[in-house]
């Protein structure tokens, strides 16, 4: 009875603490927060002065690359894991407070957070600790491929193999799932960030121009593609000319971006192929019939499904609303957590 009551007054949440974006799903409310994982910090009075958090999330993202000396806008997550422990904790605290303002009678929430498959004990512990530090009552971790598969609506509990490819900001997770467990999974540290980096390098090499992260991301979203399509799109880009040192604008086409993205895309393709090689034949047969499902922000890269289809010869589909698959899957897992417990009352 008490468990039911405290469960009723607490708002349990699921968090997709991603390299690029942090999403929060609240039980009974759906997705309540979707903000970039960026924190802007102000340094007061010299290098040994007090540090204060200036902005978090979307506001802080606007500051990325545009800050004066006293302010640093940083992304505390790198390659899917915590790069800066304290800042991550502060960011989490800020987000949790935003969605779950403390009220009378409310107890601290239970939190489900997803971690990349194959993250080390240290990395897992860092995530767990920072969530506890941010005010969680209890922290449960879930592996990203599993969360993505549940969120994409795959039949994870059936005796049939499902393959999910989750391309996030920092990592790409490939998982083969059957009977509620991960049969094979691999994680490569290639994702949206690597795409941006590849675009920056390409432009510097071929145009002698330097562009920022935000511009690179914008190029990727607007004209980036993974497979040569019928139409060629163009975009005007502004950056600093390396030779002259003066800002200039130039035009870049989708074919060039395709060329720039070849290397990170090849890494994803080889990770998928390797997973298929390692998959037991029965599950491989299931996957051949159903194909694989793409989730995560990377799935929105134009024609990435086409590329994987051509490379593997298997059907590839993009999940509904791929950006939120992982957090919805974690939220689903959160509700399952309850079903195991006291909770005939809470569910159904």
């Amino acid at each position: 009875m008490l468990g039911m009551l405290s469960g009723y007054f607490a708002n349990d949440i699921a968090i997709d603490l991603g390299t690029a974006n942090t999403l929060i799903y609240m039980q009974g409310k759906g997705i309540v927060l979707d903000e970039p994982s960026v924190v802007a910090i102000q340094q007061e009075g010299g290098p040994s002065g007090k540090k204060t958090i200036l902005a978090v999330g979307a506001e802080a993202k606007k500051m990325l690359g545009r800050t004066p000396g006293s302010i640093t806008a940083i992304r505390p997550m790198k390659d899917g894991v915590i790069a800066d422990f304290t800042i991550t904790e502060q960011m989490l605290k800020h987000f949790i407070k935003k969605v779950n303002p403390s009220r009378l009678f409310s107890s601290p929430p239970r939190i489900v957070i997803c971690v990349p498959y194959g993250s080390t004990q240290v990395e897992k512990r860092a995530i767990r600790e920072s969530a506890l530090g941010a005010g969680a009552r209890k922290v449960e971790l879930i592996e990203e491929p599993m969360a993505a598969a549940i969120g994409a609506g795959l039949p994870v509990e059936e005796a049939t193999g499902s393959m999910v490819v989750d391309i996030g900001g920092g990592t790409t997770e490939v998982g083969v799932i059957s009977l509620g467990g991960v049969v094979y999974a691999s994680s490569v540290r290639v994702g949206g960030d690597k795409f941006d980096e590849a675009i920056i390098n390409y432009i510097r090499r071929n145009y002698g121009m330097l562009i920022g992260d935000t511009t690179a991301e914008d190029i990727k979203k607007r004209i980036g593609s993974a497979f040569p399509g019928a139409e060629v799109r163009e975009m005007e880009v502004k950056g600093r000319n390396l030779a002259e040192g003066i800002p200039r604008s130039f035009t870049i086409s989708s074919n060039e971006i395709l060329e720039a993205l070849t290397e990170p895309l090849n890494q994803i393709v080889s990770a998928v192929k390797q997973s298929l090689e390692q998959t037991p034949p029965e599950l491989g047969a299931d996957i051949a019939e159903k194909g694989m499902v793409l989730t995560g922000g990377g799935a929105l890269l134009r024609d990435l499904d086409r590329l994987l289809m051509e490379e593997t010869g298997l059907p590839v589909i993009v999940a509904d609303d791929p950006l939120t698959c992982v957090v919805r899957g974690s939220g689903r897992a959160l509700e399952k957590l309850d079903k195991g417990g006291v909770a005939i009352f809470i569910n159904d």
């Binding site: 994409a152 609506g153 795959l154 039949p155 299931d286 159903k290 499902v293 589909i317 999940a319």
Partner: peptide, 11 residues
């Protein structure tokens, strides 16, 4: 194979 896939195939 399932509704998720049916939707994906149609798309």
């Amino acid at each position: 194979p399932g509704n998720t896939f049916a939707r994906g195939f149609v798309r």
